[in-house]
Write a protein that binds this DNA or RNA. Structure first.
Lengths: 313, 313
DNA sequence: TCCAGGTCATAACCTCTGGTTATGCCTTTG
DNA sequence: CAAAGGCATAACCAGAGGTTATGACCTGGA
């Protein structure tokens, strides 16, 4: 299913947002470093492509129509996602030679860090951040070896020589498509979950390990073979939403889908799938400068839900 | 803040997703109706623009690198948002002459309906839906007059001649930026909230009315003038996140920001800001065909959280 | 009443991105 | 060893989208 062409080029929408904010084509054009006729043409073309009038032009400026306001909101969501992509990718680019080197577990790298980095950048515009995504053990190792100034890990593992602070709480959820038989169940048994083939990532991320551990705590050692192995979290989400099967995913990964109802969480009583997300750093070299800033951002950001700084050894 | 150019063109990312799914440049190119060299060039250029190697090419296909997998996940989020935008805009286009005519309140139209329509379309590819966004009273009026086959409204208002079904629960939240003084308060008093200038929408959406009603229930009739009036919900979110002030927004509008911590919700005990979102239709003309399908989708989607169908008169 | 200063639209022109086909090289496989 | 499938390179071409120059229109102040 290829992308509808009318949404392929985000510049037009970016321009539209500027018009909405500034109130005139000319000023929006200036903000984007282009001439006023160019902006005029672009927006006219956008309106033609969508088949919707977005702006009410007048000799004293342009304002949004009702439809325009709606489009602006939807477009802003796209652009926000695009910004996270951009900053995330930028931090991957400078791998190992950034001024601030961060190592993070999959979940944190994917869902939390980009947003933090956007904030960090707004305070220190010329900072180059390098991000490395790895599993918890590798992150600990990187921080220990001095390859990373700051690390973010999942789970309770602590290591000698490192200090840690709780950042947020995460929870693994069993999710299925709406209409899946499990959604009609009040609750799902542990055995049933273990016996069901699940959709999971290709290389065992921390998720699979956490699930196995949680089941093992209830004496369940045997788990069904995966139904399907996919390369990215979103591929899994789409497979689940399409009704292919069930999956176990981080609550951070599926909050949007739960909100719109594209996915449904199934209650599995007794399964302890809570995970603490925490920041770690070398005891001998506490975070300073940009690392301290990032730690502060991460702490305040998630601090309202799970606070308290704790020492590990 | 203009958009980074390397994320402006979504086709490249769409192509990347196809490669990730199909395992080869050529097949991805075919899926997009372009030649293999074009795909090759595009992806190479994308890698240059991002400064990150995304694919590991071999004579037997191409697979994602670790960085590539991360980029794919971020990109998928962008594309999902783009799809919502596309289907939303498409439903605005066919205003009044669609086969299925839906009228919805701001919140539903903005955050829930596009996702439902994506699902609906997947079942009935050639259906044209027309969406009209309005306030609750106008929606009721439209459904009553037969201008809409199905309506979605906020709040408990019911009207004669209409039937309704609860779809989902929504909650208005007081949100501020992390670091805002209110975040250090355990709880906020009703009086303080009423006295604080808030950021709100330009034309009074249902939100303002709901807030006034909730305060009035506690005998508070005086409310401060708005601090700022903005034209879209996301403009408000950005202003709040930038620390400009506080706002009252639907939980549906801010769930993503609460997750990443870009916004923080402040507890205001005693303030009843729950709203029921419900579908309405004419008693004499119960939904059939596509309208019934949409109603079913909306019900199952949100059904796991707030169920039960109820009759209103 | 009329001029000045906004705003948006139109026209003519040009650049350069991004597509195509044709072809070659490499690796795996039967 | 030949065939097939996969990616890269080369030469070519079209058109999308930019620019400057200019005009028409409305509003508000002198």
């Amino acid at each position: 299913m290829p992308l509808p062409p009318e949404v392929a080029d985000l510049t037009s929408y970016d321009l539209l947002l500027s018009v909405a904010r500034l109130g005139s084509l000319g000023r929006a054009a200036a903000e984007h470093g282009m001439s006023q006729p160019a902006a005029s043409a672009r927006l006219r073309q956008l309106e033609r492509a969508l088949g919707v009038q977005l702006l009410r032009r007048s000799p004293r400026g342009s304002t949004l129509t009702d439809a325009g306001a709606l489009v602006v909101d939807w477009a802003q969501a796209v652009l926000d996602a695009a910004y996270t992509l951009a900053t995330g990718a930028a931090s991957l680019r400078s791998a190992r030679h950034g001024r601030l080197r961060v190592a993070a577990s999959q979940t944190v790298a994917e869902y939390l860090l980009p947003a933090w980095l956007v904030t960090l950048r707004s305070g220190r515009p010329e900072l180059t951040v390098s991000l490395r995504a790895a599993n918890t053990a590798q992150v600990v190792e990187a921080v220990h070896a001095g390859d990373a100034d700051l690390g973010f890990i999942e789970g309770p593992q602590v290591a000698a020589g490192l200090r840690a602070r709780d950042i947020a709480a995460d929870r693994l959820l069993v999710v299925v498509a709406p209409g899946h038989p499990w959604t009609r169940r009040r609750r799902l048994g542990l055995g049933e979950l273990a016996a069901a083939p699940l959709i999971m990532r290709e290389q065992g991320s921390g998720t699979r390990a956490a699930l196995l551990a949680a089941l093992a705590a209830h004496g369940i050692g045997e788990v069904a073979e995966p139904l399907l192995q996919l390369s990215s979290t979103t591929a899994i989400k789409h497979a689940v939403a399409a009704g292919t099967g069930a999956a176990v995913l981080s609550s951070l990964a599926v909050s949007a889908e739960l909100r719109t109802g594209a996915l449904v969480a199934v209650d599995v009583p007794g399964l302890a799938l809570e995970r603490v997300l925490r920041a770690v750093w070398p005891t001998r070299q506490p975070p300073g400068g940009p690392a301290a800033d990032l730690l502060a951002i991460a702490t305040t950001r998630a601090g309202s839900r799970s606070t308290g700084s704790k020492l590990a050894r």
